[in-house]
Lab assay of single mutants.
Amino acid sequence: TLFEALYDYEARTEDDLSFHKGEKFQILNSSEGDWWEARSLTTGETGYIPSIYLAPV
């Protein structure tokens, strides 16, 4: 399942991933609670993103 960003997000740590509204992600690991490891389909970068900023596509 792909997810789309509902809002912009600016990374706060080196493990976080910055993204823009409308960016799409492949989720790599969603077992860490509210922060999911994801790969951006726009940039190819991976990192942790807040799941509350996402909606399934």
Rank of each mutant, 00 (worst) to 15 (best):
I49V: 15
S51E: 04
S31M: 13
E37Y: 15
A5Y: 01
V57R: 03
H20K: 15
E23R: 01
K21D: 01
S30P: 08
Y7A: 12
S31C: 10
G33A: 14
I52F: 12
G47N: 03
K24L: 15
E10W: 10
F3G: 01
Y53K: 04
Y9Q: 02
I27F: 03
S40K: 12
G47V: 05
T1E: 11
R12I: 11
I27L: 06
R12M: 11
S30G: 10
S18Y: 03
H20M: 12
Y48F: 13
K24R: 14
R12Y: 08
A11F: 03
E4P: 00
I49S: 01
E45M: 15
K24A: 06
S40P: 01
I49C: 04
T42V: 11
I52V: 12
G22L: 03
L41A: 05
E32R: 15
N29T: 08
R12W: 08
G22Q: 02
Y7I: 12
S40I: 05
L6M: 10
T43S: 10
F19W: 02
A38L: 03
E4Y: 15
G22D: 02
Y53A: 14
F19K: 00
E4M: 14
S51C: 11
I52E: 11
L6T: 06
A5R: 00
P50F: 13
R12E: 11
E10I: 14
T1S: 11
D16Y: 14
A38E: 01
W35K: 12
R12N: 10
A55T: 13
H20Y: 13
I49W: 01
F25R: 00
D8Q: 05
D34E: 13
L28Y: 06
A55N: 07
S51K: 14
A11E: 03
E37M: 15
T42H: 09
G22P: 00
Y53V: 06
L6V: 08
W35G: 03
T46E: 08
E37I: 15
Q26A: 09
T42S: 12
E10K: 13
A11K: 09
L17K: 03
D16Q: 15
Q26K: 09
E10Q: 13
E23Y: 05
D15E: 13
F25S: 00
E37D: 04
E14F: 10
I52W: 15
Y7P: 00
I27Y: 02
T1I: 13
P56V: 09
G33I: 11
E32K: 15
F19I: 08
D16G: 15
Q26R: 09
D16H: 15
A5D: 00
S51D: 02
H20V: 13
P50A: 09
R39N: 03
Q26F: 14
L2Q: 06
V57M: 08
D8A: 08
E10S: 11
I52Y: 13
N29M: 07
E32T: 12
F25L: 04
S51G: 07
T42C: 10
T46N: 05
I27D: 00
S30A: 12
F19Y: 03
P56E: 08
L41M: 12
I27P: 01
T43W: 02
A5T: 03
E37C: 15
G47C: 03
D34C: 14
G44A: 05
E32H: 14
G22I: 00
N29I: 06
T43I: 01
D16E: 15
S40W: 01
A5I: 02
E23N: 06
R39T: 10
S40V: 04
I27A: 02
T43E: 01
P50R: 13
F25D: 00
Q26T: 11
E4L: 10
E32F: 12
E14A: 14
F3N: 01
A11Q: 07
W36D: 00
L54E: 00
E32P: 09
S51H: 10
I49F: 02
G33S: 13
Y9T: 01
G33C: 10
G33T: 13
A11T: 05
T13S: 14
S18T: 09
G44P: 00
D16A: 15
L28A: 04
A55E: 07
W36Q: 02
S31Q: 11
D8T: 07
P56H: 06
S40D: 02
I52A: 15
Y53E: 01
S18N: 06
R12A: 10
I52H: 13
W35I: 10
F3K: 01
A38W: 01
I27S: 01
E37Q: 14
D8G: 07
L17Y: 07
G33K: 13
D15R: 15
S31V: 10
A55Q: 12
Y48E: 02
Y7G: 07
K21A: 10
I52L: 13
P50V: 04
F3T: 02
V57L: 11
D34T: 11
L28M: 08
I27M: 03
Y7Q: 11
T42M: 11
A5E: 00
W36I: 05
R39V: 10
Y9R: 06
H20D: 06
L17W: 06
A38V: 15
S51P: 07
E23P: 00
E32L: 14
Y7M: 11
E45H: 13
P56M: 09
K24V: 14
G44Q: 06
P56R: 07
P50D: 07
A38N: 00
Y48A: 05
A11W: 02
E14D: 13
R39W: 07
V57Y: 10
F3W: 15
T42Y: 10
A55P: 01
T1F: 13
Y48T: 07
N29P: 04
Y48Q: 08
G33R: 12
T1V: 12
T46I: 14
G33Y: 09
R39E: 05
T43D: 02
G47M: 06
P56C: 06
G44L: 07
A11Y: 02
K24Q: 12
D34Y: 15
G33F: 10
P50W: 15
R39Y: 11
E4C: 09
V57K: 04
H20A: 11
T13W: 13
T42N: 09
Y7W: 13
Y53G: 05
G22K: 04
G47K: 04
E14M: 12
L41C: 10
A5W: 01
S18D: 04
D8N: 09
Q26P: 00
V57H: 06
L17D: 00
S31A: 11
L41F: 07
E23V: 03
T1P: 11
T43A: 02
T46M: 09
T43H: 03
G33M: 12
P56Q: 09
E45F: 11
A5Q: 00
Y9H: 06
E37P: 04
A38I: 06
T43Y: 02
A11I: 02
D15F: 15
Y9G: 04
L17S: 02
D16W: 10
Y9F: 09
E10R: 11
R39Q: 08
N29L: 06
T13N: 13
N29K: 08
Q26W: 14
T13R: 15
D34F: 14
E14N: 12
E14S: 13
E45C: 12
E14R: 11
E4N: 04
I49P: 00
L6K: 08
G44Y: 06
K21W: 04
T46P: 01
N29Q: 08
T13L: 10
S18K: 05
K24D: 01
W36N: 01
E32Q: 14
S31H: 10
S31R: 10
T13F: 15
Y53P: 01
F19Q: 00
Y48P: 02
F25N: 00
L41S: 04
F25C: 01
A11P: 05
L54N: 00
K24S: 05
A5H: 01
G33D: 12
Y53W: 07
L6W: 05
P56G: 05
V57P: 04
G22M: 03
G22H: 06
H20W: 09
E4Q: 12
L41W: 06
T1Q: 13
D34M: 13
S30L: 09
L6G: 02
E10V: 14
I49N: 00
T42K: 13
Y53D: 02
S31Y: 09
G44M: 07
K24M: 14
L41G: 02
E10L: 11
S40L: 06
H20L: 12
S40F: 03
I52D: 11
A38P: 00
S51Y: 10
